[in-house]
Design a protein around this nucleic acid. Structure first.
Length: 408
DNA sequence: CAGCGCTACCACACCCC
DNA sequence: GGTGTGGTAGCG
């Protein structure tokens, strides 16, 4: 009897000693993985740059998330952790501050094709958001096929909704198998390019003047890139009017051959609060280190979260030990790329750095904006043409003839 | 001590008809 | 009035 007591006492003392040597952290954090797996990473920074430099020192697969303070002041801080661990606390509600959580899309990381869609309902009483989303998915899928030979349909598109009575608001995440974009800027280049006809249409509506005889050509493999790095569309009429050697033969051919297939894009144009025209697709999200609100998060000061849309058609393949909800979460993350050998990496035009460099050169050498250059094969400065082509070729396959590129 | 990265917009200078 | 530039309020 006494012997048993002594044994128990000894065990308690050992346990006490163990906890003295290994004190509990101030915040309860159960082990998420087997002991032999990497230990947890959960670190918060006031500055984004500090968060990114910490990520570089981590061997774990960690990512930067932006957390909005509930004060609605717009102030944010930055969390570094793994997807797994974030999901654990995110759903368990251990930390209420995770309610307003944003994925930071690093400027040079591969990412998925994604869209931020919105319109103000009172200004667009006749707009049918669901049908607009369906049309957009159809359009984007058609362009993915044309430009990259990538197959995609509505069942490959995760459709998240955070609409209110006032505003129709969606996030679309395209998930054709094993296909990603080189980075956020390349996504932006692609999106701006395929929506160019709608942008021009909108501008002409805003100006209330529709220029005569101006058709717009979708720039594809044989296309040209403006010296300023923008994706410029060649117009046969403009070219001829400037009396320059026309290089629009192929483009003109493409225009006619695709005309029947091209979808009508006017459905993308909506009214904003002031009654001006704007696009249903927000083109302002394809920028450096963009914060993108996450599945099940709300904006600070609001309680509307992003949830699976009623008309969502995407269902993730559930891997072992992953709930359906977690699988949706992982699918919704723009930079959650499982890089395989057979992953297709799509690119479109310049990277941001290259765009800035050539824009700088353009302004310093010609002293004018893109207008003077549009529609020309060569600038008056061969050295610069050579330099710009070298930038383009870096992105292309087989000498860089292709502006839209697929890596394997 | 502490958010970030734009862009549309404005004021102003300078030029030229 | 046309055009370039520098600074910033406010948006996403």
């Amino acid at each position: 009897m006494k012997r048993k007591w002594e044994e128990r006492l000894k065990k308690v003392e050992e346990l006490a000693s163990h906890y003295e040597r290994n004190p509990l952290p101030p915040v309860y954090r159960p082990k998420l993985s087997k002991p032999f797996l990497p230990s947890s990473v959960w670190k918060i920074f006031c500055r984004q740059a500090e968060a990114f430099s910490y990520v570089k020192t981590c061997k774990e697969d960690v990512h930067v998330f932006a957390l909005e303070k509930n004060t609605q002041s717009g102030q944010r801080f930055y969390l570094v952790t793994t997807y797994k661990e974030l999901w654990f606390y995110y759903t368990k509600g251990y930390k209420t501050s995770l309610m307003h959580c944003y994925e930071v899309i690093p400027e040079k990381d591969a990412c998925k094709l994604y869209f931020d869609l919105e319109f103000y309902k009172p200004a667009n009483p006749d707009a049918d958001g669901k049908s607009m989303v369906a049309k957009l998915i159809e359009l984007v899928s058609q362009k993915l096929k044309e430009l990259y030979d990538v197959n995609c349909s509505a069942k490959d598109v995760l459709n998240l909704d955070s609409s209110t009575d006032e505003k129709f608001s969606r996030h679309l995440i395209f998930l054709p198998q094993k296909t990603v974009f080189k980075d956020n800027f390349h996504v932006g280049n692609f999106v701006r390019t395929i929506l160019q006809p709608a942008i021009r249409l909108m501008e002409s509506k805003a100006a209330a003047v529709i220029p005569e005889g101006v058709g717009h050509v979708f720039q594809c493999s044989a296309g040209r890139v403006g010296l300023d790095g923008s994706l410029t569309n060649l117009t046969a009429a403009e070219d001829a009017s400037k009396g320059r050697p026309a290089i629009a033969h192929k483009a003109k051919h493409m225009e006619t051959s695709h005309q029947g297939k091209n979808l009508e894009l006017s459905f993308l144009i909506v009214n904003d609060k002031e009654g001006d025209k704007q696009l249903f697709v927000d083109l302002g999200v394809y920028t450096k280190n963009r914060n993108f609100r996450m599945y099940k998060s709300s904006k600070a000061g609001k309680n509307v979260i992003l949830k699976i849309a009623e008309d969502n058609k995407f269902v993730p393949n559930c891997e072992e030990n992953v709930s359906l909800e977690e699988a949706y979460f992982l699918s919704s993350l723009i930079c959650n790329i499982r890089a395989m050998d057979d992953t297709k990496v799509l690119s479109s035009g310049f990277s941001e750095e290259e765009r800035k460099t050539s824009a700088f050169l353009n302004s310093k050498t010609t002293g004018s904006s893109r207008d003077s250059m549009e529609g020309y094969q060569d600038s008056p400065y061969p050295e610069i043409d050579y330099f710009v082509r070298s930038l383009v070729n870096k992105d292309g396959v087989q000498g860089g003839k292709d502006h839209f590129t697929v890596y394997k």
